[in-house]
C-alpha cells in the first residue's frame, strides 16, 4: 500500500514538474523563399525553457529533440523483379503518408535519450518518418516498401537524423541549425521541439514554416498549371527564337 502511494506521489510530482517547465521556441525564419538561384538553406531553431521553481535535486538531465518535417504526401513505390531473364517493375504500392522532407536533430543518440515507444508515438527518428497506417498490415510486404521510401530519401538528402547537433546550455537555452537541401519542394513545413526527461517526452511545441516559390519561379509554375496551352506555345516560341538566333549569330560570325 505504502509502495503504491509513494509511486503515485512520484507520478504526481513528475506531472507537476512537467507542467512547470514551459517551452519557448523561435526560428530564424518562418518563411523560406525558393528563388531561381535557391541552392539550399539553413533554419536556425532556438528557444528556452521557462521554470517557476528551480529543479529538485537529482532530476534526470534534460534532452531536446527537434523534428523539421515537410507536408505528408502519397508516394508510389515500385519494386523490380526478374521475369523471363529481365528486370522489370513488378509490384507497386501506394505509401499514403510520407513527408517530403524529414530532419531529426537531438542532443544525444536517440535510443539513449528516448524510449522506443515514445519515438514511435511522437514520430521522432527517421524510422518513423513514413507513417504506418492500420490497413498497411493487410500487405505483408508493406514494411519493405516503407523502408525503401526512407532509404531512398536518406540517400537523396531529404531524410536525416543527427545526434548531438542540438546545443543545450544550463538546461535552459537550446539551439540547432537544420540544413534544407537544394531539392526542396514547396509546402507547409513544421518544426516540432520536444523536451525529454527520463526517456519520456514531457513537453512539445510546434512552429510552422512556409516554403514557397517566389518571383519568376512562382509565375512560371502557375502559368504551367493554369494556362497550359499558352505555356506550351510560349515554350515552343522560345525554342524557335533561340534556334533562329543561334543560326543567324553563327552566319554573322562566319562572314
Amino acid at each position: 500500500m505504502l509502495r503504491i502511494l509513494s509511486f503515485s506521489f512520484a507520478l504526481l510530482a513528475g506531472a507537476v514538474a512537467a507542467q512547470t517547465e514551459e517551452l519557448v521556441v523561435d526560428l530564424s525564419q518562418n518563411h523560406v523563399a525558393i528563388t531561381a538561384d535557391y541552392s539550399g538553406s539553413e533554419i536556425f531553431v532556438f528557444g528556452a525553457i521557462k521554470r517557476d521553481h528551480p529543479l529538485p535535486e537529482g532530476t534526470a538531465p534534460l534532452e531536446v529533440a527537434i523534428v523539421v518535417e515537410g507536408p505528408l504526401e502519397p508516394v508510389t513505390v515500385r519494386r523490380k523483379e526478374k521475369k523471363l531473364g529481365i528486370w522489370v517493375n513488378a509490384a507497386s504500392v501506394e505509401v499514403e503518408e510520407a513527408p517530403s522532407f524529414f530532419a531529426v536533430a537531438t542532443t544525444g543518440p536517440l535510443d539513449e535519450i528516448l524510449t522506443e515507444s515514445m519515438q514511435a508515438d511522437y514520430a521522432i527518428g527517421i524510422d518513423h518518418a513514413v507513417r504506418r497506417l492500420a490497413h498497411d498490415s493487410d500487405n505483408p510486404d508493406m514494411e519493405s516498401f516503407n523502408e525503401a521510401v526512407t532509404r531512398i530519401r536518406v540517400d537523396s538528402g531529404l531524410y536525416s537524423e543527427r545526434d548531438g547537433i542540438v546545443h543545450l546550455t544550463d538546461e535552459t537555452l537550446f539551439r540547432a541549425s537544420i540544413q534544407l537541401p537544394a531539392n526542396l519542394v514547396e509546402g507547409d513545413f513544421s518544426a516540432k521541439v520536444f523536451l525529454i526527461r527520463d526517456r519520456n517526452v514531457i513537453s512539445q511545441t510546434t512552429v510552422g514554416i512556409e516554403v514557397r516559390k517566389t518571383g519568376l519561379e512562382r509565375w512560371l509554375y502557375n502559368l504551367a498549371q493554369d494556362q497550359a496551352l499558352l505555356y506550351g506555345l510560349m515554350s515552343l516560341l522560345v525554342a524557335l527564337v533561340a534556334g533562329y538566333g543561334a543560326s543567324e549569330l553563327f552566319r554573322l560570325l562566319k562572314r
Binding site: 502519397p74 508516394v75 508510389t76 515500385r78 519494386r79 523490380k80 526478374k82 525503401a148 521510401v149 532509404r151
Partner: peptide, 18 residues
C-alpha cells in the same frame, strides 16, 4: 545492362495519387 543485371536499388519512387 539495366534490364539483364540486378539493379543496386530494386525500389523506385513516383508521384503518388491515382
Amino acid at each position: 545492362y539495366g534490364l539483364l543485371f540486378e539493379p543496386s536499388e530494386l525500389y523506385s519512387l513516383g508521384a503518388g495519387g491515382h
